[in-house]
Design a protein around this nucleic acid. Structure first.
Length: 278
DNA sequence: CACCCCACCTGCGTGC
DNA sequence: TGCACGCAGGTGGGGT
């Protein structure tokens, strides 16, 4: 699903459409539950009549802050979408699990084909516990090469799996993990603990560069990602390795290889990514 | 503790 | 055409 750039693009699109708007109705068109979801009756009890104040992002979570210290946490899982529009825009759309009608007649819908997402309500004063397990923000000053080296010290797990671990750095998913490793010229199977401080400087620099560029490009659409206006992203045009197994490397022409790490596909160029070997 | 596998869901492309 | 299989942007629980 959406990784950090896609979630951030959604946040930026949604925020001005929601700020100050009051929720006047909530329905559950599909009648199906997400992986984790506050019951509809509780959503209605706590959200109806309240205005959206702010929309924040933490890792891949979106945090909707409403009047009266009520919070709604939304995670899009693999296939979740948040779309804004007119009621009639979504009449025939399948897999719509929640619909919020706003006082100006616009609607916000949560659509999720695979239903791996989460929509959780937090009442005033309640702790937002899902955020406790979210790692550090890649753009935060508390993420430094030294901190990364410290986190990786003594670890045998492959660098790819380390980058993908949202409890350490938040927001990097399978696409950007592959792209970051290509940009840094590092082999995905190198044990994370074997990187030097200089390697971590490069990894962090490329992580920030790629995530920032992806946000500017409106995210990556490989299957069905859409921003809050139903538009695709453009970063897929910049992908160097992800989804390109067997195709020639865009830098050197060597066929891109695919391998499976921790149950997920990894794509890499065996020629460009060998400054460290497994 | 560290690490990996698997389930959780639905749909789509591929190959027989 | 039909069917079985593999695969898909994430995450956490449980096993080794």
């Amino acid at each position: 699903m959406p990784e950090l750039p896609e979630v951030e693009v959604i946040r930026r699109g949604l925020a001005p459409r929601l700020a100050g708007r009051r929720i006047v109705a909530i329905t559950a068109p599909s009648g199906k539950q997400l992986r984790q979801q506050t019951p509809l009756a509780d959503l209605q009890a706590w959200l109806l009549g309240r205005r959206f104040l702010q929309l924040k992002r933490r890792g891949k979570y979106l945090r909707f802050i409403l009047e009266g210290d009520v919070n709604l946490l939304v995670h899009l899982g693999m296939t979740g979408r948040l779309l804004v529009g007119r009621e009639s825009d979504f009449h025939t759309l399948p897999h719509v699990h929640l619909k919020f009608v706003l006082e100006d007649g616009s609607v916000l819908i949560y659509q999720d084909l695979r239903r791996f997402g989460q929509v959780l309500l937090f009442r005033p004063g309640e702790h937002l516990w899902p955020l406790d397990r979210v790692g550090r923000e890649p753009f935060s000053r508390n993420v430094t090469p030294a901190w990364l080296a410290e986190q990786a010290r003594g670890r045998s797990r492959p660098l790819k799996n380390f980058l993908l671990d949202g409890h350490i750095i938040a927001g990097i998913g399978n696409i950007y993990a592959c792209e970051i490793l290509f940009a840094a010229g590092l082999h995905p199977e190198v044990p994370a603990g074997r990187l030097s401080l200089e390697d971590w400087e490069l990894v962090l620099k490329e992580t920030r560069r790629l995530l920032a560029r992806a946000i500017r490009r409106g995210g990556t659409t490989v299957l069905n990602y859409l921003n809050s206006f139903g538009e695709t992203g453009l970063f897929q045009l910049d992908l160097m390795v992800y989804g390109r197994g067997g195709e020639p490397c865009r830098r050197c022409g060597t066929p891109i290889q695919r391998l499976v790490q921790a149950g997920r596909s990894t794509f890499f160029c065996p020629s460009c990514q060998k400054s460290k070997q497994p």
